[in-house]
Measured scan of single mutants.
Amino acid sequence: VTVDIKGMEYHFDNPEEAKKFAERMAKELGGELKVENGTLKVE
């Protein structure tokens, strides 16, 4: 699973970990979490 945090890509084997990480980063950065082509994106 790929997580894109404002252009920086992180790769996770575990989808649950990827989702938790993306949600935490969205909250910390005040960004919006989206799913695009199987990639979790925070913008």
Rank of each mutant, 00 (worst) to 15 (best):
V1W: 15
V1T: 12
V1S: 07
T2V: 13
T2Y: 08
T2A: 05
V3E: 00
D4K: 15
D4H: 15
I5E: 01
I5W: 08
I5G: 01
K6G: 14
K6E: 13
K6Q: 13
K6S: 13
G7C: 10
G7Y: 04
M8G: 02
M8K: 14
M8V: 14
M8N: 08
E9R: 15
E9M: 15
Y10K: 01
Y10A: 01
Y10H: 04
Y10S: 01
Y10V: 03
Y10G: 00
Y10W: 08
H11A: 05
H11D: 02
H11C: 13
F12L: 01
F12G: 00
F12T: 00
D13T: 11
D13Q: 10
D13I: 09
D13R: 10
D13C: 14
D13S: 12
D13G: 08
D13K: 10
D13P: 09
D13H: 08
N14M: 03
P15G: 07
P15K: 07
P15F: 15
E16N: 07
E16G: 06
E16M: 10
E17A: 09
E17K: 05
E17G: 02
A18W: 03
A18D: 00
A18V: 00
A18P: 00
K19W: 15
K19L: 14
K19F: 14
K20L: 12
K20P: 00
K20R: 13
K20F: 09
F21W: 09
F21S: 00
A22T: 02
A22D: 00
A22Y: 05
A22H: 01
R24S: 10
R24P: 00
R24A: 12
M25E: 02
M25W: 12
M25A: 07
A26E: 04
A26H: 04
K27I: 12
K27G: 07
K27P: 01
K27Y: 13
E28R: 10
E28Y: 12
L29G: 04
L29W: 06
L29V: 05
L29T: 07
L29R: 02
L29M: 09
G30R: 09
G31T: 07
G31R: 04
G31C: 13
G31P: 03
G31H: 06
G31W: 13
G31D: 04
E32H: 14
L33K: 02
L33W: 10
L33P: 03
L33N: 03
L33A: 05
L33F: 08
L33M: 09
K34C: 11
K34V: 13
K34P: 03
V35I: 13
V35K: 06
E36V: 14
G38K: 02
G38Q: 06
G38H: 06
G38R: 02
G38I: 04
T39V: 15
T39H: 11
L40I: 14
L40E: 03
K41T: 10
K41V: 12
K41Y: 11
K41H: 09
V42N: 03
V42F: 05
V42S: 04
E43G: 11
E43H: 13
E43A: 11
